[in-house]
Design a protein around this nucleic acid. Structure first.
Lengths: 341, 341
DNA sequence: CATGTGATCGTTACCGGTTACGTTTATATG
DNA sequence: CATATAAACGTAACCGGTAACGATCACATG
């Protein structure tokens, strides 16, 4: 039967140790001005009572809390990867992480939740916040770092080099001999989606291929939204020989649609994604994609936020993570070219 | 140029609206006793200033915070699944979730951190806590629910029916004709590991097969720890025709070891895991396993914790989630039996 | 007209710590 | 011995809200 009584407060420790509240606080925080014998008494009382300071009371009074906040709206695998990166950056620093998730908007993709959570946390509970994939802009008095922000965002951010990555993806397809390359876009308000589409357009233009609006379908990064555009692209009389999807989730849906239509990947259709989520490597066929290290995004975001909190961050506050082409089994030369050889 | 000034407090709203702090509080919390015109003024001031109440100050004063805490030590895929279940249970209830992760022990598997975090959160910031895979026992004045607790735990818990699941796994192998079945155990201090081993022993005994200690290797649920025992089992002169690993992570390592030794799965060796992590379905060969719905564990844990907080939970406070055999490609009749037919 | 009643709103103590400041005591200095 | 100095520790204000309590006022009632 353990104690189900009230939690142990600092005043309890003070009473047992026969000192004042202030002295206990000094001991807990290792401040100067307490005799060795008093420190000993207080330590003993703390151990005896099993005292732990209240995070809430401490952060209300203190300006610095040594806790960083992270706000997210879902826990997909990419979020987990980001979190691992953040934890790695924080490991051994003595800085803890609080993740705030609100149930009301779960799965609802509603907007404005980041703002609410950030203002509720920043300035009191946390020294700063990381926002994972924000769907709207935020303002805050405490430092904020966004991962994959919206297009017009002015807050410090960490993103993959989406433009270069998209160019690399299209160049890969061009290099294989593809001429008609379809694109399934992401949510246009997000900077990442915009940059990937720009990369697609740029790479084609550079290669002297005119942009055909009929080859551009619009998704919003959620896998299901790729199904319609994919069917449309693949059912068209002059269907593309390759499709570049702005995310792996959507690319995997393209694979499904291709299978459903009896198209062989990569012989009839090449598919390339973006993100390199764990599922991509395990798909059938394994998905060629552009790797953006979520782990790295989280890691760098935590680093940047720490620097911002310490005031030691150098401008500009936008870090770009390089991307990498991962060639797997979903891309190959188009059938005509393959026959030529 | 947005405001980089101090955060807006309730007193700022009060000043702008020309009322007292208490009235603003009443409006924010929708309490009775404020005239319609005053409510309007306060609402306007709140909108104008963009006020959001401080989570910290509120929870310091209030006994009830409508925030649940979750303490975890890592963000593997099972944690993400659990989180999704928790969020689903909380969706629409107006109850938010705070996840606390401490960096010091990240990956270090040290002990006692759960206790620190729970006491720092419970009673002030949160109304109660869910602890994911605790490695030690905890006490708390606020309700606590453990997912996969330690063996001697007395706290309310949610676990899969590990015993029955393990029996099912072994029965599946026995049904295929296997007689020599190896086992790779999990961390013995965890209730789940213990129940799975008990299930293994029980199923064999029930089938009249004596327990051979040489067939039991010890891991601790971390995948790498399965490699040694797997090599030992598979290199032995009288090697088992099937191995039951106490977790999918470890089972996947067994597959790797088998490949390394030139053994074909499932022809030379059947492998069955436990958990049904996403990777299991995508492994080569696809892993036969016992499904324990992490999502469900999280969901039920959140439900139980809510009931505990509301005081509406009925005894006993231990909920058992049924498990399910998922037959895939890593199990088959042993070679001898296969030849018999 | 005196008093009762209820709605509205301000005053103030408090949640559990932190810290500026003041007080006491011991020791050093003139 | 009087005074300066510093170490050790307590007192009390404060962080940003909440809620018990009291005060004020309009209106109804005897």
């Amino acid at each position: 039967m353990t104690d189900v009584s009230a939690p142990v407060r600092m005043s309890d420790v003070a009473r047992v140790a026969g000192v004042s509240n202030a002295t206990v606080s000094r001991v807990v925080n290792g401040h100067y001005g307490v005799s060795a014998s008093t420190v000993e008494k207080v330590r003993a009382a703390i151990d005896e009572l099993g005292y732990e300071s209240s995070l809430v009371a401490t952060s209300l009074r203190r300006s610095r809390t040594n806790v960083l906040g992270l706000v997210t709206h879902s826990f997909e695998s990419y979020t987990a990867e980001v979190l691992k990166g953040v934890m790695e950056a924080l490991s051994g620093t003595g800085i803890d992480l609080i993740i705030y998730a609100n149930s009301d908007t779960y799965g609802a993709r509603s907007t404005g939740w980041e703002q609410r959570h950030v203002t509720r946390l920043a300035g009191t509970l946390t020294d700063g916040c990381i926002i994972v994939t924000p769907w709207s802009n935020v303002r805050s008095t405490a430092p904020v770092v966004a991962i994959d922000p919206v297009r017009d965002s002015t807050v410090p951010s960490v993103t993959a080099d989406n433009f270069t990555g998209a160019v690399t993806a299209v160049d890969h397809l061009l290099g294989l001999g593809h001429k008609r390359i379809g694109f399934i876009a992401g949510r246009s308000t997000l900077a990442a989606a915009w940059a990937r589409e720009e990369g697609y357009r740029d790479a084609l233009t550079k290669a002297g291929i005119p942009i055909d609006p009929a080859l551009i379908g619009s998704g919003d990064f959620h896998p299901e939204t790729a199904i319609g555009p994919a069917r449309e692209l693949l059912n068209s009389p002059n269907r593309p020989s390759a499709i570049f999807a702005a995310s792996d989730g959507m690319a995997l849906k393209v694979l499904e649609v291709a299978q459903e239509l009896g198209l062989d990947v990569p012989d009839d259709l090449s598919v390339i994604g973006f993100d390199n989520v764990p599922e991509a490597a395990l798909a059938n066929p394994a998905l060629t994609t552009i790797d953006q290290s979520m782990h790295r995004l989280g890691f760098e975001a935590a680093r940047l936020l720490q620097a911002l909190v310490n005031g030691s961050a150098q401008e500009p506050h936008h870090v770009l993570i390089p991307t990498r082409l991962i060639v797997r089994d979903s891309t190959a030369p188009p059938r005509e070219q393959a026959a030529d050889r």
